[in-house]
Amino acid sequence: MALIEVKDVIGGYGGAPILNGVNIAIEQSDIGVIVGPNGAGKSTTLKAIFGLLKVTGGSVMFDGQEITNSLPDKLVPRGLSFVPQEKNVFTSMSVEENLEMGAFIRRDDISGTLEEIYAMFPVLAEKRRQPAGELSGGQRQMVAMGRALMSKPKLLMLDEPSAGLSPKYVLEIFEHIVSVNKAGVGILMVEQNARQALAFASRGFVLASGKNRYTGTGPELIADPEVAKSFLGG
């Protein structure tokens, strides 16, 4: 059974629905990538899964349980983590405090996980006492990812983790995502760098106007001439 299964989800921000039947299913071993034009509802899909907006139709199953419209303080303990697209660090708090906030729901010893994160992002270990607001864009993205990993999730959702980063950092972030996945964490991410992200995606979803247009493995979608022409810029 899939780790997460989003079935015919309909939802929006109170007005007309933005999502008109989104379907997503991925395993814990998968890297799922959602691509699509601006305003397609990609961010909205992640928010709908995470209980940040009202789902009015369809269902979301996670790890064998229905979580439709559950709130984050219930979802995080169950193993779901989310890195929003913007404002995804506590700017006035130190790097280490940011990471600690990711583990707020845990009552056990977090020092081991903290060391794992520092091993993955050595630059954060150096800056652990520095306010996250003073870091560069790439380092902030690492803090954001580290924060989300501190709760030891089964599924990590990331909204455009490479947005605004220089090509060198884009590659680095993608490498980290792949290694997190190898360590046993399912990934569901939205990406603007579609071609690059689909290349390592085991599941790809092309969304347009709040609906799935194409679904397949990443390489399949890249190879599909229709997808390439309409969504990947030729």
Binding site: F50, L52, L71, P72, D73, L75, V76, P77, F82, P84, K87, N88, V89, F90, T91, S92, M93, E97, E100, M101, G102, F104, I105, R147, S151
Partner: peptide
């Protein structure tokens, strides 16, 4: 303290505090 830091987190960025699972 954990709760004190959670307070600062919520004051800094309430949406992210919620997303982090902090008991707001």
């Amino acid at each position: 303290s954990r709760l004190g830091k959670g307070m600062r987190a919520m004051s800094d960025n309430p949406d992210l505090a919620q997303v982090s699972g902090i008991n707001t």
